[in-house]
Nucleic acid binder design. Structure first.
Ligand SMILES: [Mn+2]
Ligand SMILES: [Mn+2]
Ligand SMILES: [Zn+2]
Ligand SMILES: [Zn+2]
Lengths: 153, 153
DNA sequence: TCTGAATCAGGAACTGTTATTGATTGACGA
DNA sequence: TCGTCAATCAATAACAGTTCCTGATTCAGA
C-alpha cells in the first residue's frame, strides 16, 4: 500500500529535497505533509500559481485541507526561503519556486505569468538611492502585458 | 453668503482649471461638486493620499459624502487623465495630481510617499520587450524604504 | 418647465488575506 | 513504546480595500 497520506513522491527525493530539509531544520519549522503538498503543487504547475490555484491542486490529493492552511504553509515556505512571491495590483499574489532575483510579466487578460530572462537593471537601485533621502529597501519592477495567445484575440 | 455648497475656491480658478474643464468636456463626464471636492482635497494635501484620506478631507466640508462616491470620483478623474494612481502591495492605492511618469517611494513604517526626481530609466522598457514574447504594456517601478523620520527610530 | 440620463448616498457584496478557535498531531525525552 | 506539550491543524470568522447595486435626486438640454 502506498503511503499517500504523506504526499510522498519520488520527485521530491532529489538533490533539492536535502536543501529543503536543511532549510526546515535550520528554521525550526517542521516539514509537514501539507507543506510538502504545497511545495509539490508548486513544482507540478511549473508556473506562478496563486494561493487559490495551489489550494485547488492540493485538494485533489487531500480534499480535507483548508485554504487558510495553504496560506499558512506558503508564508512559512517563503519565510525560510524555499519559495518567493510577487504581487501585481488587483490580482492575487503569485508564488514561485524560483527564489533568484528575476523579472516576471503577467498577462492583463488571462493572468498567465512568465519569466523574462536577460534584462540588465544596471545601477538602477544605486541611482534611486542617490536621489532620495529615504533609505531604499526594495525596488520591484512590476511588468504587465499581453501573452502571445491573448494578443491573437 | 459664500457658495460653500459647491466647494468653489479661488485656487481652483487658475490655469489648470481650464485644463480640467476641457478634459471633462471632452470626456462627456460632468464636473460635479463631489468630483471638484476630491480634486481640491488632492490639491490641499499636496501629497499622495489614499481614497480613505481623501474621503476624510472631503467629509470635513461635506459630511454627507459616502466613501463609494469618492472612489467613483477618483476613478472618473483617473480615466480622463486629471489624476494618476499608484499601488504598493499590502496598502491602499495612492492618488497623485502629478500625471507625468515619475518615481515615488513609500515608507514601510509610516506609509508616507515622496517623489524621486532625476532617475534615468534608460532603455529598460525596450530591453524588457526584447526579452519576452508578451507585448509589454506597462512596467512600473515599485520603490519602498524608510523615510528620514522613521530612520531615526 | 419637463424629461430622461447621469449621478448620487448608502449600504451590501466581494476578493484576497489574516486571525482566532478548539481539536489533533507528532517530535522528543523518559 | 509511551506520555507530554508545543506545534500545527481545519474551519470559520473577521478584516481591509474596493466595487457593485438600489432607489432617490439632480441637472443639462429640448
Ligand atoms: Mn518567476
Ligand atoms: Mn508622485
Ligand atoms: Zn494571456
Ligand atoms: Zn516613515
Amino acid at each position: 500500500m502506498i503511503d499517500e497520506g504523506k504526499f510522498h513522491t519520488q520527485e521530491m527525493t532529489n538533490r533539492l529535497e536535502q536543501d529543503i530539509r536543511e532549510k526546515f531544520r535550520r528554521s525550526g519549522y517542521t516539514l509537514t505533509s501539507q507543506r510538502r503538498a504545497v511545495l509539490e503543487a508548486l513544482r507540478d504547475t511549473r508556473g506562478h500559481p496563486s494561493a487559490e490555484d495551489i489550494y485547488l491542486l492540493v485538494k485533489k490529493k487531500n480534499p480535507r485541507v483548508a485554504l487558510g492552511t495553504v496560506y499558512q504553509a506558503l508564508s512559512v515556505l517563503e519565510e525560510i526561503g524555499v519559495i518567493g512571491s510577487k504581487h501585481w495590483a488587483e490580482s492575487p499574489t503569485r508564488y514561485d519556486l524560483n527564489t533568484e532575483p528575476h523579472l516576471d510579466i503577467r498577462c492583463r487578460r488571462c493572468g498567465e505569468v512568465a519569466e523574462i530572462p536577460g534584462v540588465e537593471l544596471g545601477n538602477l537601485e544605486a541611482q534611486i538611492q542617490e536621489n532620495t533621502p529615504y533609505s531604499v529597501s526594495s525596488t520591484t519592477l512590476v511588468v504587465e502585458g499581453l501573452c502571445p495567445t491573448c494578443q491573437k484575440e
